[in-house]
Write a protein that binds this DNA or RNA. Structure first.
Length: 1110
RNA sequence: ACCUUGGUGGUGAAAUUGGUAGACACGCAGGACUUAAAAUCCUGUGGGCAGCAAUGUCCGUGCGGGUUCAAGUCCCGCCUGAGGUACCA
């Protein structure tokens, strides 16, 4: 019976399907392993042979771990939202929902043919409302959180009021009585926030792009021009995580190059910010509000990484857009400066990039005062200083910086030398291994020492401070596109953003027939006016529960340690929520304050037991709510504790209390009542009751029904970018059908981090940074237990295409073969690789392509053949070099395809696709097959498998066992190190060995077969069943390595004389060196090479080699 | 310009810690089986020189130095491919 791979593969794929062979249970009792692929965009082109490379590698690893007894999570899904899907839909004139669905079907069909062990019941699609409900939910977590630099953690936005200084400005907002002002201030802290800013606007795509989606001034997708445009956009405050993203990188098992890319992207530089005073010829400079908070008086703040070069400063350069330029420019210089500003601002980013070498600038006429020498130094503007980095101003040190040097030379500025024994006549010296000179108190010091002392001095004189700068910017999170997650955000009549609540999710993407851009740079959703205009019930316990109380900012609230300068309480904010008018609010607040100072015995007992977060929740006492004052109040779960004193006992009082309770209930508060007696005598019971009530209330889902206010809102019409859904998908696979939460914590604790993540390097700074940030956020907020998503990451190399060319003689229909093309003036034209055999063009097929465009073509041949040119390029449709895996599988089978892709070379290496070697792998599988099955039997005994098997039950010899265990060791080692190319070699080696020995013994073959499962699962299942097994081989146990079988007692030593290997000699491994030395020196060949010279040294490395030195 | 990686036969590539360079495969050459083909199997295959041959011998991991008994592997300088970043102070 021959190896009929097509039949076998179909059969077992169906079998695995029917038996749910790849279904993964959340079985906490087993050790886990999480193997993840970067999920694909389901593009219209389908898979080419380059895509599955990483999938095959992860599949091998996942299957291996399963054979080793692990519970392996190895899922697959689709990154279905985003620009490419929408672009494809527009190009093909279909709705993205349709194309996405069709494309996903096609991908699944193609993936299915390769025989991957995905558990499809866990498939996720980012465009599925059941999925993006949680993307939106996580967005709300980001929106409702801020980064507390003191705790270095993400915290709920509420904590900002108690955190000390950062939101101190909010007091000004209070004074203004403006909810919108508070909201405006909070936007400066939220992790997802909206801001008016310059963005990368791509007119052709009609949308904003993130920094990493823009390459050299054009869009990554499509290569369209990108310009800067001022727009109100959503951002993710990833800069807050800069330091953490940087430091935790060290512990991750990522490729070094990728870590380096992330480090570059984050771009940390350590140095100092230094203030240079401006010669006070301009009196109004000191009145401007625009100067930096840290150094509020007049002056220019510069950022430098080389404070040691402070004495080399001979001029200052500002970015042309710098806000001080107009203030300091003298009247004489004004025309020149304005002219320069006009030129630079009119130029696009791209033009600026193109002219990096030309030196330009303009003198402002103003002078700064050197902080140490007191010397006046000129202030210039130039576009080589970027407004967006550092402070937008530099202190120029021409002797130490090439650009400053070039600038100084060009404009004839002074170039003082502050380096000892360094010649700067020709060029600047940026070497850091120099000694500083001519620099007052830092002369004769090294760069490092000088830096430290200079900063110390700067800080001492309060003219600057140590400062760390990051190149990374916050990530743009808005897209003016249709095919993405809608934001769970609405705007009220003042345009203030209001977040939807959990129960409003998912906010589904409305179906639109057309999705062309909306008005005023808005996205397509702006056209859906019915959807944009909405009446909603916004509950009081939504995002607006931020600060229902004046307490944290109130006077005398020792708990918070903030002394407010204002006595006026928040009320407009309160008004909106609590419907309390301003005057009674103030009266109540005053009453509450008095109450706090004269508390009853019960109140103080309870206060002592609850204060300072003692039960894990913050409590306030005598807190004004509605028209009442609550004795104790837990803001986070809206629980009110009332203590009924002596004067609360009569009947009318009781009725009053009850009605009060029910009103409070109605507007969303829970009320617990205790008597004085209970509190004084049974305080423990009381605390327990409170704790359990809090637990009940603070459990995520059943938040108390708030007061619902129906009002009119406008929806956000931007959608989220492609990376939103992919930032957390690894979590959803763990618990894909949960409708209560994005992923149950018990389950995410079990599956934990991704053990191995395989994907392309193109996501190095985008997706990977964002998902690391989201992970840290979810971790800090307590939703998951780890703050890095991926433990180990592997970048598989790209498989490029090998393109073929034909050469058309210009303006003719004549084609000339490659070898002769030099004689003609030709155009190079890509020709489809499928009609080229090696390099020889199939002329008949060529005439038929492109609707017979070349039907009448004439050819100039060499040796009767048309030879094509070749080039290695990215595999793409337009280059006609795409090889479809389906075709390869049809011809050789999935097992051959899988093994060949691995055999091609190391996983991380990029290589062109070349079908040349595939025969060798296919031959190996056929040879392997013949170890188990009699090749001719099919002719005689069709269908009788048992008879076909030629596997015997003989006992394996010691030699056979030894080679088996050598094999096991090699395969095991290679898989664990992702060196799959060499494991394929090992399979060939053992197969050749067993064939030569004519060994068909079950004892050996069965074990080898199991090791083959990860690589070639179909043939393994078939042979497993042919040799009589009734269960699937997928659950077999990986052979256990017996090292004792590998122990050798002799070794064939290479013997070298003077390091050159001359002969081999076999010795027992336990032989003594003296023994060996004697025999070696007696050896004829050794003697010959020693040539009677005296022995100098005898080098003997046990089990390795022998070297004789003369 | 800077950072990260690579550079080994005709080709894809092997070579855990410095220890017999070129495993395994493709291709090529020759042979066996066959009427023939496919399939399969066997032999050879880094280069030069010597020899009928077994074999011997010299050279050989981008280039030039160095460390070492021993270097593809470690160090210094350069050339070059790929990827990334780029007036980032």
């Amino acid at each position: 019976m021959q190896y009929n791979f097509n039949e076998i593969e179909k059969k077992w794929q169906a079998y695995w399907n029917e038996n749910n062979s790849y279904k993964v249970e959340n079985d906490f009792s087993k050790p886990k392993c999480y193997v993840l692929d970067m999920f694909p965009y389901p593009s219209g082109a389908g898979l080419h042979v380059g895509h599955p490379l990483g999938y095959i590698a992860s599949d091998i690893y996942a299957r291996y771990k399963r054979l080793k007894g692990f519970n392996v999570l190895h899922p697959m899904g689709f990154d279905a939202f985003g620009l490419p899907a929408e672009q494809y839909a527009i190009e093909t004139g279909q709705h993205p929902a349709t194309t996405t669905k069709v494309n996903i079907e096609r991908y699944k069909e193609q993936l299915g043919k390769i025989g991957f062990c995905y558990d499809w019941s866990r498939e996720v699609k980012t465009s599925d409302p059941n999925y993006y409900k949680w993307t939106q939910w996580i967005f709300l977590q980001l929106y409702n959180s801020w980064y507390n630099p003191k705790t270095n953690k993400v915290e709920k936005i509420e904590t900002i009021f108690d955190a000390g200084c950062p939101m101190s400005d909010v007091r000004n907002a209070e004074r203004d009585n403006q909810t919108s002002t508070i909201e405006h201030r909070l936007m400066e802290y939220r992790l997802a926030y909206k801001k008016e800013s310059y963005v990368n606007w791509c007119e052709a795509l009609g949308t904003v792009l993130a920094n990493d989606e823009v390459i050299n001034g054009v869009s990554e997708r499509g290569g369209h021009l990108v310009e800067r445009k001022l727009m109100s956009q959503w951002f993710l405050r990833i800069t807050a995580f800069a330091e953490r993203l940087l430091t935790s990188l060290d512990d991750l098992d990522f490729p070094e190059s990728l870590k380096e890319m992330q480090r570059n992207w984050i771009g940390k530089s350590v140095g100092a910010e230094i203030k240079f005073d401006v010669r006070s010829q301009i009196s109004d400079l000191s009145n401007t509000d625009k100067t930096d908070n840290q150094h509020p008086s007049s002056g220019i703040n510069v950022f430098t990484t080389r404070p040691d070069t402070i004495f080399g400063v001979s001029f200052i350069v500002l970015a042309p857009e710098h806000e001080l330029v107009n203030l300091i420019t003298t009247t004489e210089q004004k025309p020149a400066v304005e002219e320069y500003q006009k030129i630079t601002s009119s130029r696009s980013e791209r033009e600026r990039l193109a002219e990096t070498k030309t030196i330009s600038g303009s003198f402002t006429g103003a002078y700064a005062i050197h902080p140490f020498t007191g010397k006046e130094i000129p202030i210039w503007i130039s576009e080589y200083v970027l407004a967006g980095y550092g402070t937008g101003a530099i202190m120029a040190v021409p002797c130490g910086d090439e650009r400053d040097y070039a600038f100084a030379k060009h404009f004839n500025l002074e170039i003082p030398n502050i380096f000892k024994d360094v010649d700067i006549a020709e060029k600047a010296c940026s070497d850091k291994n120099v000694v500083i000179a001519n620099s007052d108190f830092i002369s004769d010091l090294s760069v490092k020492e000088a830096s430290k002392i200079a900063i110390d001095k700067i800080e001492e004189r309060k003219i600057g401070s140590r400062k760390v700068n990051y190149r990374m910017r916050d990530a743009g999170f808005s897209r003016q596109r249709y095919w993405g997650e809608p934001f769970p955000i609405v705007y009220d009549e003042h345009g203030t953003a209001i977040a939807l609540t959990d129960k409003d999710l998912p906010l589904e993407l409305p179906f639109l027939e057309t999705y062309s851009a909306g008005p005023n740079g808005k996205g397509p959703l702006a056209n859906a006016t019915d959807w944009v205009n909405c009446d909603l019930d916004i509950t009081s316990n939504s995002n607006l529960d931020l600060t229902p109380s004046p307490s944290p900012l109130g006077e005398g609230d020792v708990e918070h340690g903030i002394k407010s300068s204002t006595k006026k309480a928040v009320n407009s904010y309160g008004e909106k929520i609590f419907n309390t008018d301003a005057s009674s609010w103030i009266a109540l607040k005053e009453f509450a304050r008095q109450n706090r100072s004269k508390q009853t015995e019960a109140e103080s007992i309870l206060w002592e037991a609850l204060r300072n977060n003692k039960i894990g929740h913050k409590v306030r006492r005598q807190h004004a709510i509605e028209n009442y004052i609550a004795d104790f109040y837990f803001a986070d779960c809206q629980l009110i504790i009332e203590i009924d004193g002596e004067y609360h006992t009569d009947k009318s009082q009781l009725e009053y209390d009850n009605s009060r309770t029910s009103i409070l209930n109605e507007i969303g508060f829970s009320v617990l009542r205790f008597t004085n007696d209970e509190v004084v005598n049974y305080s423990e019971n009381v605390i327990a009751k409170i704790t359990s009530k809090i637990n009940e209330l603070s459990h995520p889902s059943p938040k108390g029904e708030g007061k619902r206010v129906r009002s009119h809102f406008l929806r956000e019409t931007d959608t989220m970018p492609g990376y939103a859904g992919s930032s957390w998908y690894y979590l959803r696979y763990m618990d894909p059908h949960n409708s209560e939460t994005f992923c149950d914590k018990k389950i995410s604790d079990y599956w934990n981090q991704v053990d191995v993540y395989i994907g392309g390097a193109e996501h190095a700074v985008g997706h990977l940074l964002y998902s690391r940030m989201w992970c840290k956020t979810l971790h800090d907020l307590g939703f998951i237990s780890y703050d890095e998503p991926y433990k180990k990451l592997i970048n598989q190399g790209m498989i490029g295409g090998s393109s073929r060319f034909v050469y058309r003689i210009k303006n003719t229909n004549q084609f000339v073969s490659k070898g002769l093309k030099e004689n003609y003036d030709t155009n190079e034209i890509h020709v489809d690789v499928t009609i080229v055999d090696g390099y020889e063009l199939d002329l008949e097929a060529f005439k038929k392509i492109k609707n017979n465009e070349y039907a009448n073509a004439a050819f100039i041949l060499e040796d009767g053949k048309y030879i094509c040119g070749e080039a290695f390029e990215k595999m793409s449709k337009s280059k006609y070099n795409v090889v479809n895996p389906d075709d390869i599988i049809e011809q050789y089978g999935a097992d051959t395809f899988r093994m060949y892709e691995m055999f091609l070379g190391p996983l991380e290496m990029s290589k062109p696709w070349d079908t040349k070697g595939i025969e060798g792998v296919h031959r190996f599988l056929k040879k392997f097959w013949r170890l188990f099955v009699n090749d001719n039997s099919s002719l005689l005994e069709e269908g009788l498998r048992e008879v076909s098997s030629i596997v015997t039950n003989e006992v394996a010899t010691k030699e056979e066992l030894k080679s088996l265990h050598k094999h096991i060791k090699k395969i095991q080692h290679d898989i664990e190190n992702f060196a799959f190319n060499t494991s394929v070699s090992q399979f060939m080696i053992i197969t050749n060995e067993l064939s030569t020995l004519n060994c068909h013994k079950r004892e050996s073959l069965e074990q080898v077969l199991i090791t083959l499962v990860p690589f070639a699962p179909h043939i393994a299942e078939e042979l497993w069943s042919i040799i009589g097994n009734k269960t699937s081989i997928l659950d077999a146990q990986f052979p256990i390595l017996d090292e004792s079988l590998l122990v050798e007692n002799t070794f064939n030593y290479p013997v070298a004389i003077l390091g050159k290997s001359r002969t081999e000699m076999e010795f027992a491994l336990d032989a003594t060196q003296d023994d060996i030395q004697m025999q070696v020196l007696a050896n004829e060949i050794v003697q010959k090479w020693m040539d009677n010279k005296p022995l100098k040294k005898f080098i003997f490395v046990k089990g390795k080699m022998i070297n004789v030195v003369v």
